[in-house]
Design a protein around this nucleic acid. Structure first.
Lengths: 305, 305
DNA sequence: ACTCCTTACGGAGCACGTAACTATA
DNA sequence: TATAGTTACGTGCTCCGTAAGGAGT
């Protein structure tokens, strides 16, 4: 059995069982990939693919099982190559992160500044996606790790390390009564039209639960995936904004008042997730360490020790 | 990077860094293995081996890391081949089990009889070892799984499934007062010289703890790894035997009396352990299922449903 | 007619074995 | 001197690419 054959198998599946496309992905000609696949089938002695005539249409049960282990095998080979790179030049490479818009814009910048000072030779790639996509990207080796705000279920094969916690703030145009009214509780919030994150983003499910537990139903007139959209419509006067505190900027959002609501909602946890069997390069560990040590409860950057 | 190179790396380590021996293990000549290793080093761009002149003496840090992932890679390749075999001929192959003497002699026979009826084409290999060795054998792919009586610590990468529980009995020559005396407790047991398992075997640590918790110190005059040795010396009149109940045979041990002690000691758990990422063939699952369903609390075989 | 996969064939490269050389104990 | 590892070199295999042949849509 050869690694090439496994690579062709994986590429085939990722190309929708189009051998030609798989070959292109691998920078080979079709016939080469075709040979890999038939050789693999021959060697295992069993059909891996469903066929309609000559066309491949999907995997058999055996094929699915083999694919699973083929992915694992190739991932470990990648890990070995990463070890090589790590020991050749510890401080060069590419760091690929996936996260949500809000994290990318409001949390990562100072961390990345510090990281780049320490590792000027490491290139950075920041992908964005929904919380579900973030986990998928980490699982499929499209990124080195993902920074997830939504609580990640325990997924086998995925390691999740908690980095920092955060809570919510209310934002409104300056002078809005909700900014100063006392007492203030979830009940009062429901008196106003609200703008917050769409379901699935930034702990929106915990958010809903907080109200539901008290039998309240918030009047969310608009929801968005990223904080900038929320702010925009708060400025328009469409309603109160409920955002992650860390997404409020003293300088850029001076025209908006902010009221901390940490007492009203449970704390949310931001986690870094990556495949459990992934080899972590030094600079990857350093970046995760920054995520764990540099973010205060209010989302502010804390100078390094 | 090629699988051959990884195989050579693993073989080298398992041969005590003797390239010649590694080559023999792989049915290759030295020079081939030598090339694999240098190629691997070249490709990774870093030294994997400690050297004294030309001789290899050990691994560098990078080498250790690479070895770890090389083992994983090769294990997954083996899994792929196993999937092939499974789908070619579901009912043929080899089942390699490791366990202790007592399990092999007193528990497995009826299971193996039933298993062989169902899978007459599957060859069986039973290895023996100390509880520590059993886990090692499963980890190093020397066996498909191990049947462990000693409580297995949670080891990452190892899956342990509980199969059955067992407890202890006292054995003594017929007519011995300890067989019938009432009341009977750990205290009374300490009045007699005892013969039982050596530390590390068959829950010996729990055994010690049971006494220690009451401030008692049993007078163990002889300890052995397997039950047959214990029985032999009980027959000699050297002392009372404390054995796993499942190791007492009504037919062969009719000259010895038995007294159940389940009330005096905690129940021990017998577990099957195997590498978490191991692909389980159908007949392997069947065997584990037999272990889980066919053994009663007294160690007797329960007819299939 | 077009796309897609397989099979046949040829060349280039490489992996393994033999063997000579070098270094360690 | 015996043992162990590296390097050099030749052979045979195999892997990839070109190209022709079926098979499906």
């Amino acid at each position: 059995m050869e690694l090439r054959q496994l690579r062709s198998l994986v590429a085939l599946e990722e190309s929708g069982f189009n051998v030609t496309a798989a070959a292109q992905r691998l920078h080979l000609v079709q016939s080469a990939v075709s040979q890999h696949l038939t050789r693999l089938e021959d060697e295992l002695g069993t059909e891996l693919f469903m066929r309609q005539g000559k066309r491949l249409t999907g995997l058999t049960e055996a094929g699915r099982q083999v694919l699973y282990y083929a992915r694992k095998t190739l991932a470990d080979c990648d890990n070995i190559l990463a070890i090589g790179r790590e020991h050749v030049e510890e401080a060069t490479g590419t760091l690929r992160i996936a996260t949500t818009h809000t994290q990318a814009v409001y949390v990562l910048p100072p961390l990345i500044r510090e990281f780049r000072q320490r590792y000027p030779q490491v290139k950075l790639e920041i992908q964005q996606g929904t919380p579900e996509q973030l986990v998928e990207m980490a699982l499929h080796d499209q990124v080195d790790f993902s920074v997830c705000t939504e609580a990640v279920k325990e997924i086998p094969g995925i390691t999740a390390v908690t980095c920092y916690r955060w809570n919510r703030s209310l934002i409104a145009p300056l002078g809005h009564p909700a900014l100063t009214a006392k007492p203030f509780s979830l009940g009062e919030i429901c008196d106003y039209p609200l703008i917050t994150y769409v379901f699935g983003f930034s702990g929106a499910s915990q958010f809903r639960n907080s109200f539901a537990r008290l039998g309240l139903e918030p009047d969310v007139v608009l929801s968005a995936v990223d904080t900038d959209v929320i702010k925009t419509y708060v400025r328009e006067g469409l309603g109160l904004g409920l955002i992650a505190s860390l997404a409020y900027s003293d300088t850029h959002d001076a025209d908006l008042g902010r009221r901390d609501l940490s007492g009203l909602f449970p704390w949310e946890l931001t986690r870094v997730v990556y495949k459990s069997d992934k080899y972590l390069r030094k600079y990857e560990e350093v970046f995760i360490d920054l995520l764990q040590t540099r973010i205060a409860d209010d989302g502010k950057y804390v100078e390094g020790s």
